Simulated scan of single mutants.
Amino acid sequence: MDIVKTSKKLADKVEEKVEKGLEVVKDTFDNVARHLPFANLAKHPDDTFSIEIDLPGIKKEDIDIKMEDDHLTINAQRRYKNETKADDYYLCESSFGMFSRSFALSDNINRESIDAKYENGRLYITLEKAESKKAKKISIK
């Protein structure tokens, strides 16, 4: 048996297995990414910040917002069931799942003034700078 040929065959098999493994990992991450809610973050000139999170198909009562240490965490549960019953067929499409997004907040955010509202499948969170951290205009004497 030729050791070079055997080594080459073994290397080809290993490479093939690695490539298949990477495909599985990519497919898994693509699937996970489809279930993460999109979020927009913005800083406004009036010393406020906003976070907008898309949560279509989720009811307000299935959203939980928590502030713990320096992290603002939004958890939501989707419970969607589209069911059609007829004499000659039955169709049921369901989408269930838990969403979670966390945002690390800096020390300059006022933890007591966080505001949240939910409208048309979108969660709006407003954060304000702590009063002591807001920019102050200094007059010249």
Rank of each mutant, 00 (worst) to 15 (best):
K133I: 01
E93H: 08
S95A: 06
R111L: 00
K137S: 09
A104G: 03
V25I: 15
S100Y: 12
D46C: 02
K129C: 01
S132Q: 07
H44Q: 06
I114V: 12
H44W: 08
K20C: 02
D12R: 08
R78I: 06
G97V: 04
D70G: 05
L127Y: 09
K129V: 00
T84D: 07
K13F: 06
D30A: 07
R101V: 04
K9I: 00
E19T: 13
I63E: 03
E68Q: 15
K81Y: 04
M67I: 14
N120I: 02
I51V: 10
K133H: 11
I63L: 05
I138M: 06
E52D: 09
K85M: 08
N75E: 13
D46I: 00
T48P: 01
K137W: 15
K129G: 00
I140W: 10
I109W: 12
K136T: 11
V18A: 14
D107V: 01
H44P: 00
L127D: 02
E23M: 15
L91W: 08
N120K: 14
K133N: 10
D12M: 09
L41E: 11
V4H: 09
D46E: 12
D70I: 01
K5I: 04
I125Y: 06
S106G: 10
I114N: 08
D12E: 13
P56K: 10
S132H: 03
A116R: 03
N75H: 11
E119W: 04
N75I: 01
L72R: 06
D47W: 00
H71Y: 13
K26Q: 13
S100W: 11
T126G: 07
F103S: 00
K17T: 08
G21N: 15
K5A: 11
T48F: 03
F96A: 07
S50V: 00
D27E: 11
Y80D: 11
V24C: 07
E68S: 12
D107W: 00
R78K: 15
E128C: 01
D12W: 08
D62K: 08
T73N: 12
G121S: 10
V18E: 13
E131P: 14
D87Q: 12
E68M: 06
S106L: 04
E19A: 15
V4Q: 13
D12P: 00
L72D: 02
K59T: 14
L22S: 09
S102L: 02
E52F: 02
S50T: 05
S94A: 10
M1N: 08
A135V: 13
S106R: 06
S132D: 11
F49H: 10
A86R: 10
K59M: 13
D70Y: 10
I74E: 01
G121T: 14
V18Y: 09
T84K: 11
K8T: 05
V4Y: 11
K141M: 06
T126S: 13
K59H: 09
T126C: 03
M98F: 14
L127W: 09
S7H: 08
Y118L: 04
K137E: 14
E61D: 15
N108I: 02
K5P: 01
I63P: 01
D70L: 04
K20H: 12
S113N: 15
I63R: 01
D12T: 05
N31C: 05
N40S: 07
N40M: 09
K5L: 09
K136H: 05
